[in-house]
Design a protein around this nucleic acid. Structure first.
Length: 548
RNA sequence: GGGGCUGUAGUGUAGCCUGGUAUCACUCGAGCUUUGGGAGUUCGCAACCCCAGUUCAAAUCUGGGCAGCCCCA
């Protein structure tokens, strides 16, 4: 069918000759431009010319077919291999429904599957904080500029990444307000107000909150986000001795949660002067290693001495009636841990979660055949209620076949799957598959209640053991710069002798394409080793890697 | 801090060079038949990142912005 289409733009009229062609069920249009503001005669001529052309226009040229990534399969599963780390990690995050991007660069949505794990971490940490007398509070999100700039080292380090509130409605604020990158500056003026005598010490407070650090490196979900969630504990003491006494309590508490619940093996160590928290006397952190060989920091403890007390004027009268500054430490664990869990445990099939933090530890899938499934459905409900302490999912959807469901829950990392079909029912058994090894076994229904906890425990233990093996296999001694370079190129952490000179540490980054020191290896004392940079006697062994 | 690449339905993509017609597959929704490792079939829904410029006409060309990815420091 051919016809003339007229478009008006202002006074002008433009004419097109259009041919519509039915191709299957769709109508495709081919259009030729005739001209603008034509007289009737001109239009007729142009139309005739156009029609001749339209006759000769071949059918729509065949376009290349876009092949699906995996032929004959849908693309719900993970398609990247684990050694293409960033692609793989992004797929795990999106496809296991853990997080999503938002309109704000570097700020992600923590979807329910991920947030539930964060709640678990909070819960376990809170329990332990309370056991050692730490109380939860909440301080404001906004920090007036004059407070933020009181501690020099602190502000120097944080100011490049602070986000500011400068306006309310249409009016400019007299003093701009920082969105907390960390809360020392808003908490400590209150500390100064509240603390008068030694009797009010120690003061042990904590808050669970969000902070914003506007990093300019490109963001990675969970691992490097501009807004993240954490706890920040802030404690004040009357003496250094008391403050330092808690160091191991705090670090062990974190270590316990990370090892026993998150099944992550990490190594604690003291940071070098260059890498310690801005304003602290020293910092100790737990360190993990990612599948791509990059190191990442976990929970941390910072001893501040009297640095912040002096900046924020936190004084008390000691038992002798003399005025003295308090001694402080701080500690934190952040939503980075989620990324570490996901990255270290998971595989090509998807997420793997340690049972103790999995929101659902079991999924039950009945195999439904034909129409008479009442017996199986009844049995499955019974099993569900018997195992209710593991918060099982019962997937009795009829629209999906078992194989589809298997893959779905493997992708989402449910630790144990229970299948039960007619053949099993006859034998009074179920098939149990564990997510970490993908191995199946048959278990009598009557024994489920005693067997399931054993399997969950085994999964938990074996994941931790695996993470320990990975960590150890990714660290090696590197006594020379050459060896260190090779180590780092092999995606591993090097342990090298270094001296305290900050120039050497700066140089190290340059010479290794961006690797930095993680922590000082206190167990491994220097004998006569030389600094790998300046070749003078070294002061300590340090762990060195590229890191997040 | 520097450099490079990319942005098209929910996802992965074709088309961009050479301006006019939005491709294919999966997902999703409805129906029927199925159900022990991602079922089949029929029908359907659904997109050119944003803002300007050039042009009769922009997914396509130009400029800017935003976002994502990679490499180097």
């Amino acid at each position: 069918m051919t016809y003339t289409e007229i478009k008006k733009k202002g006074e002008k009229k433009y004419y097109y000759r259009v041919k519509s062609i039915r191709q299957g069920k769709k109508v495709n249009k081919q259009r030729i431009y005739l001209g603008g503001n034509l007289t009737k005669q001109e239009l007729k001529e142009k139309e005739q010319q156009a029609d001749k052309k339209l006759l000769n226009i071949p059918k729509r040229p065949e376009t290349k077919k876009a092949l699906p990534e995996t032929p004959n399969q849908n693309n719900q599963g993970i398609t990247a291999e684990k050694d293409e780390f960033s692609k793989w990690f992004t797929q795990i995050m999106l496809k296991a429904d853990l997080a999503d991007y938002t309109e704000v660069s570097g700020a992600i949505v923590f979807k329910p599957a991920a947030y539930a794990i964060w709640e678990k971490i909070q819960q376990e940490c809170n329990k332990r904080f309370k056991q050692i007398g730490i109380k939860n509070t909440y301080f404001p999100l906004l920090i007036p500029e004059k407070l933020l700039i009181k501690e020099q080292e602190h502000v120097k380090n944080f100011s490049p990444e602070v986000a500011w509130v400068t306006q309310a409605g249409n009016s400019k604020l007299n003093e701009r307000l920082a969105i907390r990158p960390t809360s020392e500056a808003i908490m400590y003026p209150s500390f100064a107000k509240w603390i008068r005598s030694w009797k009010e010490l120690p003061l042990k407070l904590n808050q669970w909150n969000n902070v914003i650090r506007w990093e300019f490196k490109h963001p990675i979900p969970f691992l490097r986000t501009r807004e993240f969630l954490w706890n920040e504990g802030h404690c004040a003491f009357a003496s250094e001795k008391q403050a330092l006494k808690d160091k191991n309590l705090i670090l062990n508490l974190y270590k316990e949660v990370c090892e026993n619940f998150l099944a992550l093996y990490g190594v604690a160590g003291r940071k070098t002067e260059k890498e310690k928290f801005a304003g602290a006397v020293f910092s100790e952190k737990l360190h993990y290693v990612m599948p791509n060989g990059k190191a990442i920091e976990g929970p941390c403890y910072h001893y501040d001495g009297q640095n912040f007390a002096k900046a924020y004027d936190i004084k008390f009268q000691n038992k002798k009636g003399k005025e003295e500054y308090v001694y402080q430490y701080t500690f934190a664990i952040s939503t980075r841990m989620l990324g570490i869990i996901f990255a270290i445990h998971s595989d090509k099939k998807g997420l793997i979660l340690p049972p103790k933090i999995a929101p659902n530890q079991i999924v039950i899938i009945p195999i439904l055949v034909g129409k008479n499934n009442k017996k199986i459905l009844d049995e499955v409900k019974k099993i569900k209620s018997e195992l209710s302490c593991y918060n099982p999912i019962l997937d009795d959807r009829k629209d999906y076949r078992p194989g589809f469901k298997f893959n779905e829950y493997e992708l989402k990392g449910i630790p144990i799957r229970i299948e039960i079909g007619p053949r099993d029912l006859e034998k009074k058994q179920v098939i149990v598959m564990r997510r970490d090894t993908l191995k199946k076994q048959e278990i009598k229904i009557s024994k489920l209640k005693t067997e399931i906890p054993k399997i969950l425990e085994e999964i938990q233990k074996s994941l931790f053991k695996k993470s320990k093996t990975i960590f150890n296999s990714k660290t090696e001694k590197a006594e020379t710069l050459e060896k260190l370079k090779i180590t780092i190129e092999n995606k591993k952490i090097g342990i090298s002798p270094l001296c305290k000179n900050i120039k050497c540490e700066n140089n190290l980054k340059f010479k290794t394409n961006g690797a930095k020191t993680l922590f000082i290896d206190d167990k491994n004392k220097i004998k006569s080793e030389k600094c790998i940079i300046c070749n003078k006697p070294a002061d300590y062994f340090v762990y060195i890697a590229k890191s997040y």
